[in-house]
């Protein structure tokens, strides 16, 4: 059974400009122990999807609708706020993008790290401190005993991200959502953090949802990848297949626009034309159609749905055009 199953999730926001369809019918299927990547450009709804799953989207202005959000067989929609709160940090944890701003500058890291244990496990401070020390060692903070009383600003960016991870892992969650955990870090620290995440996953069997817009990181780290565009999933495949033969024009363009070391310096840098669509006024047909090189007339009027390709369950795409030259009926 899947650890997390989301069916047809819609998160809309009422704003003065109209209804913003931040997430518009997303279905995810996360198997236990796997690493699932969600890639897409800014504003494609990656973070909102996960915030909705965690129940952190305020309603109003948010409007949430879904056929099912099942976590460990439990429907999250049917849980009360209190029950949901007990789930957060305990069974589902989250690591944020910017370690510089996601730690409270006025509390010592000891206070912040022990907090989940005090809230969820009802442990006293001494027990919690022991557990935190062990975890800090695990995430690679040297001499954790002397650093417990330190404040966040006394740590470097990479160290803080390690602290954030320790904070997320302190209650042994079964699902860890990483919201662009390496974006704010430089490349060498990025590699260390990813290494750490892999090790943690191996040792604890944690399932990871990895949100990123760095395709290189996603390729190296994830088992399967969902590609999101304008609040919808446009392609879903095993990582190898996705990078070998992208089926959706958007995925293909994304892959083409990644700068490569073996590229000639004089070669023009490939970009995707235009900018992401206004979420309050999405095109009638395919959302990507105005920017698409392969658009056909049908794209303008009819919205494609996510369909299985080649009979392979893990290979889905929402496009009328097949990049391998076949036009779908």
């Amino acid at each position: 059974m899947a650890l997390l199953e989301v069916q047809n999730l819609k998160t809309h926001f009422h704003t003065q400009d109209g209804l913003v369809r931040a997430v518009d019918g997303v279905s995810l299927n996360v198997e236990a122990g796997k690493t699932v990547g969600i890639v897409g450009e800014s504003g494609s709804g990656k973070s909102v999807t996960n915030m909705t799953i965690l129940g952190l989207v305020p309603t109003p202005p948010g409007i949430i609708d879904a056929d099912a959000i099942l976590f460990e067989g439990q429907d999250l929609r049917s849980l009360s706020k209190e029950q949901l709160r007990k789930l957060r940090g305990n069974r589902i944890a989250m690591v944020f993008q910017d370690p510089m701003t996601s730690l409270n500058p006025f509390l010592t890291i000891e206070d912040q790290l022990t907090e989940p244990l005090l809230i969820h496990k009802g442990q006293n401070m001494d027990q919690a401190r022991q557990r935190v020390l062990q975890l800090l060692k695990e995430v690679g903070i040297p001499d954790p005993q002397s650093r417990l009383k330190d404040y966040p600003h006394q740590f470097s960016g990479g160290m803080r991200q390690r602290v954030m991870m320790a904070m997320a892992l302190v209650c042994e969650p079964s699902l860890l959502i990483c919201d662009e955990p390496t974006t704010a870090l430089d490349v060498t620290i990025q590699a260390q953090i990813l290494e750490l995440l892999k090790r943690i996953q191996k040792e604890h069997g944690t399932t990871i949802i990895f949100i990123t817009h760095d395709l290189g990181v996603a390729a190296g780290f994830c088992d399967e990848i969902y590609v999101m565009y304008a609040g919808r999933i446009v392609e879903h495949a095993q990582t190898d297949e996705l990078f070998k033969t992208p089926l959706h024009p958007y995925t293909a363009s994304l892959l083409k626009s990644v700068p490569r070391l073996d590229q000639e310096a004089s070669e023009a840098f490939v970009t995707i034309q235009g900018s992401p669509p206004d979420l309050t006024a999405l095109p009638a047909g395919c959302s990507f159609q105005p920017r698409c090189d392969h658009a056909i007339s049908r794209c303008e009027t009819e919205r494609p749905t996510l369909e299985e390709r080649e009979g392979n369950h893990s290979r889905q795409c929402s496009c009328f055009v097949d990049l391998r030259g076949e036009v779908k009926s």
């Binding site: 957060r88 940090g89 910017d98 409270n104 509390l107 809230i119």
Partner: peptide, 21 residues
């Protein structure tokens, strides 16, 4: 601020967030 969202994701209650964070 993000650290308040972070406090929410570890399951802290409203009163805890207000008076501790």
């Amino acid at each position: 601020r993000e650290f308040i969202t972070a406090a929410k994701t570890i399951g802290a209650g409203n009163m805890r967030i207000i008076f501790l964070h």
